[in-house]
Computed example of a mutant assay.
Amino acid sequence: MIAFIVGTTAELIKISPVHHELVARGRAVEIWYSGQHVEELAGTLDDLGLPAPQVWLVPRESARNIARPADVPRWVARLAGTVVRRRADLAQRLASDGTPPLVLVHGDTFTAPLGALVGRALGARVGHVEAGLRSGNLLHPFPEELNRRVVGRLADLHFPPTPVEAHHLRRRRGVIVTTGANTVVDAVRYALARPGRHTVQLPEVYAVATLHRFELVRREDLYRQALEILKEYSRRVPIIYFAGASERERLEQYGLLDVFDAEHFRIEDKLSYVAFLPVLAGAQFVVTDSGGLQEESAHLSIPCAVHRAHTERDAGEGRTMVLTRLDVGRLRAFLEDPQRYRSSDAREDYTPSATVADAIDALL
Rank of each mutant, 00 (worst) to 15 (best):
G35R: 00
A3K: 06
A131H: 04
R149Y: 02
V322E: 04
F265V: 11
D47S: 11
G119V: 08
R60V: 09
R85H: 11
A354N: 03
W32L: 09
N65C: 09
A187D: 04
T178V: 15
R93I: 11
E295C: 01
E30I: 06
E336D: 15
D289P: 06
D97G: 12
L280N: 03
W32Y: 05
R248N: 02
P238E: 04
T355C: 12
S62D: 13
K231I: 00
I31N: 06
T320I: 00
T210P: 03
V177L: 07
A28D: 15
I66A: 12
A181K: 06
L335Q: 08
A112D: 09
Q225M: 12
V129P: 03
R87A: 11
H310A: 13
D156E: 10
E336M: 10
V259S: 11
L50C: 09
V84F: 14
A95K: 14
F260H: 04
L323P: 01
Q339I: 11
T199N: 13
R68Y: 10
D258F: 06
R173H: 14
R189Y: 02
P161G: 09
A243T: 00
R64G: 02
T311C: 06
E61N: 11
T320W: 00
P17R: 07
I360E: 05
L57S: 05
G329W: 03
R93P: 02
P238L: 07
E295T: 05
P203V: 08
I229E: 14
R332V: 14
D314W: 04
L146E: 06
A275V: 10
H20R: 13
R27V: 03
A88G: 07
Y254I: 03
R85Y: 01
T311D: 03
V18P: 05
L104M: 10
R308C: 04
L94P: 10
A359C: 12
I239Y: 05
E145V: 11
R27P: 00
S290F: 04
L22V: 02
A166T: 05
G132Y: 02
L117Y: 07
R86K: 13
E312D: 14
T44V: 12
E40L: 15
G282Y: 05
V259Q: 14
S16C: 02
F334C: 09
L335R: 04
E215L: 08
P338K: 09
D89R: 15
D47M: 09
A243V: 01
A359W: 12
I360T: 01
V177D: 08
Q294H: 07
T178H: 07
F214D: 13
P160I: 07
P73F: 03
I267S: 07
S96N: 10
L335W: 05
A121S: 15
P141N: 02
R308H: 00
G119Q: 04
E296M: 05
S272V: 06
G196P: 09
R153S: 14
R27Y: 12
A80I: 13
D345I: 10
K231L: 12
A70F: 09
G196K: 08
P53K: 00
Y341H: 14
V151S: 08
T9L: 08
I240V: 13
G316T: 00
T199G: 12
L169I: 07
Y206M: 07
K270N: 14
P73Q: 10
P303W: 08
A346Q: 14
L326D: 00
G107M: 00
G196V: 08
C304K: 00
A207H: 04
W75Q: 06
G127F: 01
R224L: 11
R235M: 12
E40C: 04
